Simulated assay, not measured.
Amino acid sequence: MYIQTQDDLLAFAQRAAHSSVLAIDTEFLREKTYYATLCLIQLATDDEIVLVDPLRIASLDALAPLFTSPSIMKIFHAGRQDIELLYDHLGVIPAPLFDTQIAAALLGYSQQIGYGNLVSALCGEKLKKSDAFTDWSLRPLSDSQLNYAREDVLFLPDMYAQMHQKLEHRGRLNWLNEDFDELANLENYVIDPFTRYRHLAHGSSLNRKALAAARELAAWRETEARARNLPRKWVLTDEQIVEAARRNLYSIDELFMVRGIKRKITVPEARELIARVQKVWKMDPSTWPELERSSRHSEPNVDGIIDVLSSIVRLRAEENNIAFQTLASHSDLVNLARGHFDLCRCMHGWRRSLIGLELLDALHGKISISIHNNKVSLTHLSAQHS
């Protein structure tokens, strides 16, 4: 069913309120705007599939109670962008939720398996992806587009049921709680403008004084991009911010020396930026930001240690039929090798008992690694000597 009217949306919401599941996918564009343009919402319940057209319907508020109902399981595949869109347009985070891509990694599939590949593996169906990169903002939508959109949620309820049963049988269903809680964490979808400097390309090359300037410039860019609904780089690029932050910004002329900035901002805006930078530079230098990774440049190379830890993770991942990166990411292993245990996801929850403690034993020389018959073998030395 293709929903293009408020009345049809309200009627669907009333029917869907009695469903046990709600599979969700979206189609959007984000090429020329800050906020993604929501072009279509695909929804599947126990009984029906509907395609909701946000470009034809004045308000989507009728969907909010469904997204927050504790009795309806919301099902996504790689749902972070979908959740971000729904939060931007409805102000709610769907919960409870289940992400089939995340769950698949605990059932032996690759870390970021695509929807089509998972449908093929679990449902035996091969999807056509011919409309994956079409312009979803154009109307009317073609029959091919509507069929493509429908298939994006068609198999999610069945895959959820299969995966739920398999995970429960293996005693792994509760392992997903931490990951799903993180996926539904509001902090992931509310951006503080004054934290954007952390994501600047080449920002790690700045000293603390320059980084304080970059924080102000990046925060201003974020606020302006939102207000104008333009991509960040259309307001100022990362390169322009970093180059400006390196300069002694005591005058507008100095700011305008950065290539391209004079064409992008007005004199009053330049004056505001200079004032903001000057204000923060007059503060106690201890208040200036410092990128965490900058403090680690002097730490020793740990590539060899990471290789050893990786071999242990790979072995346990294969034995337990879990994707390597789900068990322990590369950044986890780097932090472990450098002693930053509190930053390692593998040292918490189910990962700690399955791999984390064993990695600590390896770091403390309590494990030997050998190869027998072309297979890696681990020996716990404390157990051997007891």
Score class of each variant (00 low, 15 high):
3 I>T: 03
7 D>T: 15
20 S>Y: 02
23 A>W: 08
29 L>F: 09
34 Y>L: 08
38 L>G: 01
41 I>L: 08
48 E>Q: 09
53 D>I: 14
55 L>E: 02
58 A>C: 06
70 P>S: 02
78 A>F: 07
87 Y>D: 04
92 V>F: 08
96 P>R: 11
102 I>Q: 02
103 A>Q: 12
104 A>K: 12
106 L>N: 09
108 G>L: 04
122 L>V: 00
125 E>L: 12
128 K>V: 05
129 K>R: 13
131 D>Y: 15
133 F>C: 05
135 D>S: 11
147 N>T: 15
148 Y>C: 01
165 Q>P: 04
166 K>T: 10
172 R>H: 11
177 N>Q: 11
183 L>I: 13
187 E>T: 10
187 E>F: 01
196 R>P: 06
199 H>F: 13
200 L>P: 04
200 L>S: 05
209 K>Y: 06
210 A>H: 14
212 A>H: 05
213 A>V: 05
215 R>P: 03
231 P>L: 13
234 W>C: 04
235 V>T: 06
237 T>P: 14
239 E>I: 11
240 Q>A: 14
246 R>K: 15
246 R>N: 08
267 V>L: 09
268 P>L: 04
273 L>K: 01
274 I>C: 05
280 V>I: 15
283 M>K: 12
291 L>M: 08
295 S>H: 04
299 E>K: 12
299 E>S: 04
314 R>L: 15
315 L>P: 08
326 T>S: 09
328 A>D: 06
335 N>S: 13
335 N>Y: 10
338 R>F: 00
345 R>T: 07
363 L>T: 01
370 S>D: 08
381 L>C: 08
